[in-house]
């Protein structure tokens, strides 16, 4: 359950950024979670939901964008949606493929007032 500590990190990050921007409130936070980031999006969302109370995000709308994983076949260069690390290329059946997207786990933006 590293999602719990990562949710704490998100709150700290939001606190720092809100203070930097001298914002009074945070209305919205947008977080990107890649399918291949190693973060379980549902667990993360539940953890954050529990932790926002008494935090800077208490009234913020939490917007989570899931980014699909992408792979590029090492043999034929075909790019495809990758749901797991260890999959064969859907076009030529070769293995392995390089991960070419969906590994991010970041705070994209805040809406503050």
């Amino acid at each position: 359950m590293h999602e719990f500590s990562l949710a704490v990190e998100v709150i700290h990050l939001a606190e720092r950024e809100a203070e930097k921007a001298m914002a009074k409130t945070i209305e919205e936070i947008t977080i990107e979670i890649g399918d291949l980031s190693g973060i379980e999006a549902n667990a993360f969302e539940s953890a954050l939901g529990l932790l926002v109370k008494d935090s800077v995000l208490v009234n913020a709308h939490i917007n989570i964008i899931k980014i699909p994983g992408k792979g590029r076949c090492n043999s034929c260069d075909f790019e495809f949606e990758m749901t797991q690390m260890m999959v064969t290329c859907p076009k030529c059946n070769a293995f392995p493929s390089e991960i070419s997207g969906g590994q991010q786990f970041r705070v994209q933006s805040l809406v503050v007032e």
Binding site: L6, E9, V10, L13, E17, A21, A23, K24, E27, I31, Q104, F105, R106, V107, Q108, S109, L110, V111, V112, E113
Partner: peptide, 11 residues
């Protein structure tokens, strides 16, 4: 004062 702050910060 509503503003959008673009961050793109790795958590």
């Amino acid at each position: 004062d509503k503003r959008l702050i673009d961050l793109n910060i790795d958590i």
